[in-house]
Structure formats: structure tokens, C-alpha cells
């Protein structure tokens, strides 16, 4: 087991000269196995506990002046309304909101932005909806912005986020009840 092995004697065959006094050297062989075991144990521990993934972050800029209003042409206003259960409705201007699947969101936003360069996207989210849906929507818009910037470096996606108003909640409720029988 662990211990120090002493090699027995000197290698044979060499005669020490009479002038030099023979040095008594002992060959030491240390059993390294336990040390290596511990080293591996520590190595595994550090490998498992290390977090390499630095957190990623998403930048959000809010308008500095809250009260300032920007006039937008109705046909350029794309509104997404998010219900408390995460259903997304979209509409243009004063059209009737319709259910929208998020799978085609990126392609849709890209197409609409190419068609209407002055498009403004307005996201209204129910206060009880999950925050992740806001992140998802803003993220998709940032992806689209990046895609379009490849062609036009000056492009910036204009969007706003706000909670759903009482009127919106009522409207969505009405749409839901009419949709149910079908």
C-alpha cells in the first residue's frame, strides 16, 4: 500500500574507484496513486461546479420622456395584444384583432417591415401574463432589426410596450366568446 519503497542497493557491476568515496544514495520510489486520486477528485469537483456560461443580457431602452406622444399613421400601427393566458392577437390600425401564432412571428415582422418602412409595433400585454412573453416578442423584434440592418444600416425598429387597458381586455374577451363556438 501507500508508502515509500526503497530500492535495494546500488546497481551492480560498477566498481567504485578508491579515490572517490562511494556516496550512499538510496533510490526512493514514492507511491503516487493516492495523490493522483485526490487530484482527480478535485479536478472533477471543479469541472462540475464551474459555470462557463456567462449570463446573456438583452438591452432595453425606454423613451426618456413618457408624456411625449408621437403621431403615427393608422395603417403603420401594428398592435399585438397578449392575453393573460399568453394568446397573442394582432391587428393593424383599427382592424379587428385576430389570434396570431408566434411561430411565424419573425417572418411576419420581417415582411411587414419591408413593406412598410415606417411601421411601429405596439405591444400590449395583460398584467397577469407572463413576463417571458414580453422578452420573446422584444427579442424577435431585435432579431428582425438586426436582419434588416444588414441591408440598411440606419434601420431601427420602432416599438412600444404597455399594459393592456380595460377596453382592450373587454375587446379581447368579446373576441374570445365569439371564437369559441367555431
Amino acid at each position: 500500500m501507500a508508502g515509500v519503497d526503497i530500492a535495494s542497493g546500488r546497481p551492480p557491476g560498477k566498481k567504485t574507484s578508491a579515490l572517490r568515496r562511494p556516496k550512499r544514495r538510496v533510490g526512493i520510489r514514492i507511491d503516487m496513486t493516492p495523490m493522483v486520486d485526490i487530484a482527480f477528485l478535485l479536478l472533477i469537483f471543479y469541472m462540475v461546479t464551474t459555470i462557463f456560461m456567462q449570463p446573456q443580457a438583452m438591452e432595453i431602452s425606454l423613451p426618456p420622456d413618457k408624456e411625449k406622444s408621437v403621431p403615427i399613421k393608422e395603417s403603420n400601427l401594428l398592435t399585438f395584444r397578449v392575453d393573460e393566458d399568453g394568446t397573442v392577437y394582432k391587428n393593424f390600425g383599427k382592424e379587428k384583432p385576430e389570434v396570431f401564432g408566434l411561430d411565424s412571428l419573425r417572418a411576419y415582422l420581417k415582411r411587414e417591415n419591408e413593406e412598410k418602412p415606417k411601421l411601429v409595433t405596439f405591444i400590449k400585454i395583460h398584467k397577469d401574463a407572463k413576463y417571458s412573453i414580453m422578452v420573446e416578442l422584444i427579442d424577435e423584434m431585435q432579431v428582425v432589426e438586426k436582419l434588416l440592418q444588414q441591408r440598411d444600416p440606419g434601420f431601427s425598429y420602432r416599438f412600444a410596450v404597455a399594459p393592456l387597458s380595460e377596453q382592450d381586455i373587454k375587446d379581447l374577451q368579446a373576441i374570445k366568446t365569439t371564437n369559441k363556438p367555431s
Binding site: 446573456q56 431602452s61 425606454l62
Partner: peptide, 14 residues
């Protein structure tokens, strides 16, 4: 926004 902090980051997973 009321505090004039208009720029911040949200931590997300990739």
C-alpha cells in the same frame, strides 16, 4: 423611467 433610468439590461439565457 420615472427615475430617468432609461437604459437597462434583462438577463436572459441564450
Amino acid at each position: 423611467q420615472a427615475m430617468k433610468i432609461n437604459r437597462f439590461h434583462l438577463i436572459t439565457e441564450l
